[in-house]
């Protein structure tokens, strides 16, 4: 699944490790989500959406 995680992170000038700390996951998890190797669970997707103040659909998309 495609996502805009890296773009949103860059807008806030956060490193992968910083974002991982805010989401309570490992840096590897953030990297895997950004590269599309791991699709986050619904609870993690909600945490990501809340952190960026957006809806899940605005961050994750299975079409673009």
């Amino acid at each position: 699944m495609k996502n805009r995680l890296k773009v949103l992170r860059a807008e806030r000038d956060w490193s992968q490790a910083e974002l991982a700390g805010r989401l309570d996951v490992s840096r590897q998890a953030v990297n895997a989500i950004e590269t599309g190797k791991h699709d986050p669970s619904l609870p993690l997707a909600f945490r990501i959406a809340r952190l960026f103040g957006m809806s899940i659909e605005e961050i994750f998309d299975d079409e673009f």
Partner: peptide, 11 residues
Amino acid sequence: TNSEVPGHPDD
């Protein structure tokens, strides 16, 4: 998209 964004210096 993600691929068009340069990585953070601390990545």
